[in-house]
Amino acid sequence: MSWLTQQEQAGVHFTDTERWWLDRMVSVIASSAGISPDDLDEAPFTERGGIDGALRDLGDRAADIIDELNKELTA
């Protein structure tokens, strides 16, 4: 995923937990041409707490990550 490569080149590194979220977000985007915060309250995200889990694990940047992934992967 080029977005992830861009992030790494910019010095952003993701933990294994953050990568879990990113990988599944990418999967949803690939199968449905986008992801919204509401999608985080569906499987497979509910196994990690849904939207609350995303906020816990990704912090304040969760919404920005969703927006960036949507732009990068649906363009």
Rank of each mutant, 00 (worst) to 15 (best):
M1P: 12
M1L: 05
S2H: 08
S2K: 09
W3S: 00
W3P: 00
L4Y: 04
L4Q: 07
T5D: 10
T5M: 06
Q6S: 06
Q7A: 05
Q7E: 04
Q7D: 04
E8M: 10
E8F: 11
Q9Y: 09
Q9A: 07
Q9V: 08
A10Q: 12
V12I: 07
V12L: 05
H13R: 10
H13N: 10
F14P: 01
F14R: 00
T15H: 01
T15V: 05
D16A: 12
T17H: 09
R19L: 05
W20K: 04
W20N: 05
W21T: 07
W21Y: 13
L22E: 00
D23A: 13
D23V: 10
R24Q: 09
R24N: 09
M25W: 14
V26I: 12
V26Q: 07
S27E: 13
S27T: 15
V28P: 05
I29M: 15
A30W: 02
A30I: 06
A30E: 08
A30M: 06
S32H: 11
S32R: 11
S32T: 11
A33S: 15
A33W: 13
A33C: 11
A33L: 13
I35Q: 03
S36R: 12
S36L: 11
S36P: 10
P37S: 12
P37W: 10
P37L: 11
D38S: 12
D38V: 14
D38Q: 13
D38M: 15
D38I: 11
L40K: 02
L40D: 02
D41I: 02
D41R: 04
D41H: 01
D41A: 00
D41M: 01
D41Q: 01
E42R: 09
A43F: 08
P44I: 02
P44T: 00
P44Y: 00
P44G: 00
P44W: 03
T46Q: 01
R48K: 06
R48E: 00
R48P: 00
G49C: 08
I51H: 10
D52W: 14
D52K: 14
A54V: 05
A54K: 04
L55S: 10
R56S: 02
D57S: 00
D57P: 03
D57G: 03
D57E: 03
L58E: 00
G59H: 04
R61E: 06
A63S: 13
A63V: 11
D64F: 12
I65S: 01
I66H: 03
I66Q: 04
D67T: 09
E68V: 14
E68T: 14
E68C: 14
K71A: 15
K71I: 12
L73A: 13
T74A: 03
